[in-house]
């Protein structure tokens, strides 16, 4: 294979061209390269080609965006894991023998710390996901559990396609709940957008589900028919909008805002801050209740 060789100023320029384009050369050397590029068409063309390649690679790689649920999954795992304790070895710091010695000490002492939370289940491990949902729901009032369960099952534990469904596809998926899409789209802030909308089911219960994204935050509107005995009565409302009450709760790092509309329960579930989640429920309650009243 024959490579072109360059002598003198051209050789010097080609040798430093990458560092020149990366702004990594000392000022004096950079000026030398610049002066040569102004007088040498061949080196200038090479510089342009290298600069173009750099731009193309950057643009192509940066076009990839993380899936909307990734930030939620990261936050969930962070909530599950405590920060390192002072006796635990730091990343990149402890030699292996020290870690082995520490492990042996723990075993030798017969101490086993059982309070450590379980890690987030794998995306394809449905039984572990079910156990996870049951565990984080345990402290919630029964009437709020369906909202959290469907959000975590459907919005968090799934991979979204690179290109989300079109509005027409989401309307078709929602079926008789199709008016929810327009009501939600009209009510939400401009920075939010709908990622997915469909009917789904979890553990035999059916839901209408609109999944929204605000930057790296994932928000669900979950609607399900009220079952026998399910009611928010007995709970204290967090806020009342036009006579309709919103009930708030937190579990497993998620925030819930629930409200009733006729024979339906509706939930806004997210990893937003508590006040923002309540605000989201307040924005949606009127239009969502109107759609659900028509759906009776």
């Amino acid at each position: 294979m024959n490579h072109p060789t360059f002598d003198g100023a051209c050789g010097h320029t080609r040798e430093h061209l990458d560092a020149y384009l990366d702004h990594e050369l000392p000022a004096e050397t950079g000026s030398e390269i610049l002066r040569h590029l102004e007088t040498c068409p061949a080196c200038a063309a090479d510089a342009e080609a290298r600069g173009t390649l750099k731009s193309r690679v950057r643009a192509a790689a940066r076009a990839i965006v993380p899936p909307p649920e990734l930030a939620v999954r990261v936050r969930l795992r962070l909530c599950e894991e405590p920060a390192r304790r002072w006796w635990q070895p730091a990343w990149g710091a402890a030699p292996r023998w020290a870690m082995a010695a520490a492990f042996a000490l723990i075993l030798g002492a017969g101490v086993w710390y059982t309070g450590r939370p379980q890690p987030l289940p794998a995306l394809d491990d449905r039984p572990a996901q079910g156990a996870f949902i049951r565990r984080i729901s345990a402290g919630l009032a029964g009437v709020l559990r369906p909202g959290l369960a469907d959000h975590v099952h459907c919005a968090v534990f799934r991979r979204y396609p690179a290109n989300g469904p079109s509005a027409a596809e989401m309307l078709a998926e929602l079926g008789s709940y199709r008016d929810l899409l327009g009501a939600v789209s009209a009510a939400i802030p401009k920075s939010w957008h709908v990622v997915m909308a469909h009917r789904c089911s979890y553990q035999g219960r059916k839901y209408a589900h609109v999944i929204l994204r605000d930057g790296d935050r994932l928000i669900s509107l979950v609607v399900t028919r009220r079952e026998q005995g399910e009611s928010f009565s007995g709970m204290t409302p967090a806020r009342t909008i036009g006579g309709a009450a919103i009930y708030a709760a937190e579990a497993g790092g998620f925030r819930l805002g629930g409200f009733e509309s006729g024979s339906y329960l509706a939930f806004v579930v997210s990893d937003l801050e508590p006040a923002r989640n309540l605000e989201a429920a307040s924005l949606l309650i009127r239009d969502v209740s109107r759609v659900l009243a028509q759906n009776l």
């Binding site: 990839i64 993380p66 899936p67 990734l70 990261v74 390192r84 730091a90 990343w91 991979r159 690179a162």
Partner: peptide, 28 residues
């Protein structure tokens, strides 16, 4: 995530690697 995708060659793998990286970072 973008860099992990190019390092491990697949979005699903990148998802796992990024979660692990955040976990290690948080612990340290």
């Amino acid at each position: 995530y973008r860099t992990a995708t190019r390092l491990v060659g697949d979005p699903a793998r990148a998802d796992d690697v990024v979660q692990e990286a955040y976990l290690v970072a948080w612990k340290n």
